[in-house]
């Protein structure tokens, strides 16, 4: 117990993660930021600095295009992915970009996965609200994810106030997981899918859940770990919509054992992401092992 009269220094230590932390769910400021940015480099700098202040060293990032169009066209999707690549170019030691695609364009989407993952070495696929995850229009994209052995981050919510058009429920994610049992799927927004959603995907061993978004609800991460095990929960923030340190505190306050917390903050992500992401396993002390920075050329182990 910190007790009365704790110093600011000791309190600052309380909110620092005890091991390296990777944020599995972030967006550029250009999409959702609180202030305008003029270049991808500036965007990368502000986002990385906020993460650093929270004790986070790596970030999965994907752009939904600066317009955040829910039904983007292919030009917007390519522009969004190019933006995420520029973030990585600016700070390759921080950003792990994912390829955003829309199932409205199944074949072009699959080609975009080929471009972004095959050539540009992005490390995963991001799906938002263009189609529900139970829609078979996702299948060509999922086949590409399976081919490259990369995780798919699927937006999901269970909103009392009503879903967005084509917004996936946890049931849709479970359907997707059952259709593609060899693809590792991360269902976004633990708070959003709530305990009902946790139960929905519990029987799907190829589904993980990220802790991003929502308020720092007491006990929500502990609940998810209890039901799915620490091996299936990933720390994510949804920054800049949410504060990375506030979201991190949900995991830090969950009362997890040392290994469980390492799983959530880093190790699960390291296991899910492809080698070329440069996210290596932690050493015994909880630090990052040196990893080769992601190269853009050469042979890729397709896993």
């Amino acid at each position: 117990m910190t007790g009365r009269g704790a110093s600011l220094e000791s309190l600052r230590q309380r909110i620092e993660p005890p091991c390296a932390a990777l944020d599995f769910h972030t967006h550029p400021l250009a999409d959702f930021g609180p202030c305008p940015v003029s270049t991808p480099a500036e965007d990368a700098g502000l986002l990385a600095a906020a993460a650093r202040r929270a004790g986070i060293s790596r970030m999965v990032v994907f752009s939904l295009h600066h317009t955040c169009a829910r039904q983007p066209d292919m030009a917007q999707i390519r522009e969004a992915n190019d933006y995420a690549l520029r973030l990585r170019d600016a700070q390759p030691e921080v950003f792990v970009p994912f390829c955003y695609v829309s199932p409205c364009f199944p074949q072009e989407g699959a080609q975009e996965v080929e471009r972004c993952i095959g050539r540009e070495r992005m490390a995963g696929v991001k799906l938002w609200v263009a189609r529900r995850a139970s829609d078979t229009a996702l299948d060509p994209i999922m086949l590409q994810a399976e081919r490259w052995g990369v995780p798919v981050l699927q937006h999901a919510w269970n909103k009392t106030v009503g879903q967005l058009a084509n917004e996936s429920y946890p049931d849709d994610v479970a359907d997707l997981a059952n259709r593609f049992p060899r693809v590792r799927i991360v269902m976004a927004h633990l708070n959003g899918v709530n305990p009902r959603g946790v139960e929905t995907v519990r029987s799907c061993p190829n589904v993980w859940i990220d802790t991003s978004g929502g308020d720092p609800q007491a006990g929500i991460v502990a609940y998810a770990v209890e039901r799915l095990g620490s091996g299936r929960i990933l720390f994510g923030s949804d920054a800049p919509l949410r504060h990375p340190a506030v979201m991190l505190s949900k995991a830090l306050a969950a009362g997890l054992e040392r290994q469980g917390l390492r799983d959530v903050l880093w190790s699960n992500a390291a296991r899910l992401l492809p080698d070329w992401s440069g996210v290596a396993a932690l050493d015994e002390a909880g630090s990052r092992r040196p990893a080769n920075p992601p190269a853009r050329e050469g042979r890729i182990d397709q896993g």
Binding site: R14, I15, A50, Q217, L252, A253
Partner: peptide, 15 residues
Amino acid sequence: APLFEPLAGLARVLP
């Protein structure tokens, strides 16, 4: 608190 994790309150301010 107790609806939110108290640590989150500090995390809004200190960084």
